[in-house]
Amino acid sequence: MIKLVNVCKSYFLGDEEVKAVCNINLEIKDKDYIGILGTSGSGKSTLMYLIGLLEQPTSGKVILEGKDVSKLSDTDLSKIRNKTVGFVFQQFNLINRFTVLENVLLPTKYSKRDLDFDPIKRADELLTHFGIFDRRNFFPNKISGGQQQRVAIARALIMKPKVILADEPTGNLDSKTGDEIIKLLSSLNKELGVTVIIVTHEKEIAKKTKRRIYIKDGKIVEKYL
């Protein structure tokens, strides 16, 4: 589904060029369940953002369903993100001045085409499925971390994306709640057939995935040390 071919991404810190990731070759298939494992600063988040089309590569190609998307305009990329990708972050990244329901509905506001579902009905279904329907009119800062992350996952799912990208989704949660979130993400892959990619530095979490990619100093390596 998504293919990265010789992808490099570098940043400039003043005049110095810093390569965040380089020579990445990676293929993500439909219904894949992948763990991207790496230490802090290894470039794993950058890799995730490249897969999620939130960043464009400095060189190389990102191919989505056979089409090179690495040179597309901001508008086109945004459209694809809206339709195809759902992000889940370590910090939950909900908008605090919106209610749970409004947060879940946010991506639907940016859909450029008519939706093939009723957004509120779908949001309610997702919230019910994740056991937080009774929190739908709460503001994010009034619910627990685990609940916030479920809201974030519901938001990631509302547009029926092909792929969910989770960046350290358990990083701000206690281990029990973290396990629940990982179970939830696994079930999405198993039951709904959504491609799930979890970026983490924890081996234990990565073990739950079907396939692992190790990244070190911006390069994919054979083994995680």
């Binding site: 945004s78 993100r81 940016y110």
Partner: peptide, 16 residues
């Protein structure tokens, strides 16, 4: 700023 980032991640264009 953070809100802008979130909106961009869920598909908001620059124009949005």
């Amino acid at each position: 700023t953070k809100e802008v980032g979130i909106r961009r991640a869920v598909g908001a264009t620059q124009w949005d």
